[in-house]
Each structure stands twice: as structure tokens, then as C-alpha cells.
Amino acid sequence: MYSVINVDIEKCTGCRTCELACSLHNYGECNPSRSRIFVVRDQDEGLITTVPVVCQQCEKPLCLNMCPAQAISRDPETHAVVIDEDKCLGCRTCVYVCPFGAPSVDPRLGVAQKCDLCGGSPSCVAICPKKALSYVGAEEESLRRKRTRVERYLSVIGTRG
């Protein structure tokens, strides 16, 4: 049973602490523009939306299949989709094909970077104050989502809450 980083958009407050922890862990500096998780913020006439975008370690990763240098593989231990920096060309194919746009090419290293789950203990999850990020089993998370949707439905029709 493997885990992925789950994002609960409704909980996210847009504080970007995840970006800071990610860049500090991976590059030794606090720099959101090098972070492997990115919080997209929109404020349309004062209405604030914040959505963290991070690799979901797809079951059939387009990036892995499309990479012309075959630099992308599955880590057998963490089940993370990882990039071999020595093989990477920096061609951005992974950036383009990803359904979330999660990978990015680091301007300083010139190679693609993406979430590798920090080897099984993600820094962003550890620091997220609102627990909008969680590192749980993929199946567990999909069951949790089903339950919360039903709870909301029950509160809307007035039998609960």
C-alpha cells in the first residue's frame, strides 16, 4: 500500500508554507520559484481561491511514458515517479504532458524537477498548518472523499448538521 500527497482545496488558506519547506528541503534555500509544490492563487474582485498543485504520482504517468530520454522511472519503495537528473535533457516534455503541469525545469540546474515525496516523508505535509496536504494511502483518500461528499449531501438535505 503506497501513499501520495493529497490536496484538500477547501482547507488550503494559501499560506505557501509548503513551497518554502519544499525548497528548503530540496535546495537548502527558501525560494518558492524552485519549489516542487506550487500554490496557485486567484483573487477575482476580492474572491480568493488557492489551489496547491503537486505531482499525484499517476498510475499511468504520461511524463514517464513520454520522456524521450527515458529519465523518468518509478521508485519501487515510495512509488514516487522520479527523474534521473543525469539523463534529463530539460526538454520540458514532462511539463507539457502532465495533467496538472506539476513538473518544472529548474532554471539553475537546467533539468526537470518534480515531487519525489522526499523519500517517503514529505516536508510540505509535515509543515502544512491547515492539514490541507496529507500523505495517506491513495485508496484511503478516495474513500475519505466519498464519505465527506455524502456528509455534505446529508447536511444540504437537512438530515445532518
Partner: peptide
């Protein structure tokens, strides 16, 4: 509709409001 706050803050002291017809603020 949402709690919000500043970069790097675990407290999120601000309440984000949307009131139809009036607009949004915190």
C-alpha cells in the same frame, strides 16, 4: 467561505467573505 492569511502563517487570522450583491473581502 474560507480562512486565509499571509505567506508562511499557521494561524490564518482572516475570514474571507463573499456576500452576493455586495462583493468580497476579508
Amino acid at each position: 467561505y474560507k480562512r486565509t492569511g499571509c505567506t508562511g502563517c499557521p494561524v490564518h487570522c482572516m475570514e474571507a467573505y463573499h456576500v452576493g450583491g455586495l462583493g468580497s473581502t476579508v
